[in-house]
Amino acid sequence: MKIRTMKYFAGQGFRGIWRNRLMSLASIGTIASCLMIVGIFYCIAVNVDYMLETLEETTGITVFYTEETEEISEEKIQALEDQLNRIDHIEKIIYISPEEALNKEKEEWGEYGSLLEGLENDNPLPPSFELTLDDIRYQKEVISQLNQINGIEIRYLEEETKILIGFNNMIRIVSLVLIVILGFIGVMLMDNTIRLTVYIRKNEINIMKYIGATDWFIRWPFIIEGIIIGVIGSILPLIVIWFSYNFITELIYERNTFIQKILVFRTTGEIFNLLTPISLVIGIGIGVIGSAISIRRYLKV
């Protein structure tokens, strides 16, 4: 295909959109709302995932013996480590000696850390193991296996993890359903839009056929029309999401310093790295599929 022909197709595509602007607007609107939802849910899902990841890293599972520290022998610790090693989905096992535990506490207490001075000789903190899972979704499974080991206590963030995982799954399902429904509506509206253009250009198309236009020459402007509508329909929500995302994350960071440990967000750049191509693909996809259906049905070339 030659460049001047592509220019002609693009011109025809834009003209088609302009000639039935109401329908084009409706199509753009549907694609945009579809992608707005995709975008919003994507942002939420990615961040929930990110929070889970952060949770996995910062708050793993901690296990320790309930007995008095002095009674715990080296062999017992070694035996526990061996048992832990046999459990699936545990990625990392870190041994934390009472001394290390104390130092950590001091750090966390910050300026009040000096209050803990002197405990070195009579350290109440037991030796413990910090476990990191390869995926936090297996937490329940691992916990139930840990429960079978006698004489240890297990500490982990059960509630938070449960909520996040449930939330994550719900978002995935809801967004998938919405995308399918809206995508379907988008394709149908697109089909109608292109049908109108085909109808308006019926005369022209007939004449084109008589003077030797190939089928593709006749089809391309309609496909381009679909592509243009798809691109506009995907860029609009991207812009809106860009600004809202910046705004909302900043707001949360500013206001809620205390939950920052769990409420961590991906940067806008990280979000758009993937959201932009996803949106464009879906938007253009809906546009092109819609016009392709219409071309097949109404454009008897």
Binding site: K209, Y210, G212, D215
Partner: peptide, 13 residues
């Protein structure tokens, strides 16, 4: 069907 346009280019109407 594909060849029809090229036939029509030989025929002015």
């Amino acid at each position: 069907k594909k060849e029809i346009p090229f036939l029509r280019r030989k025929l002015g109407v």
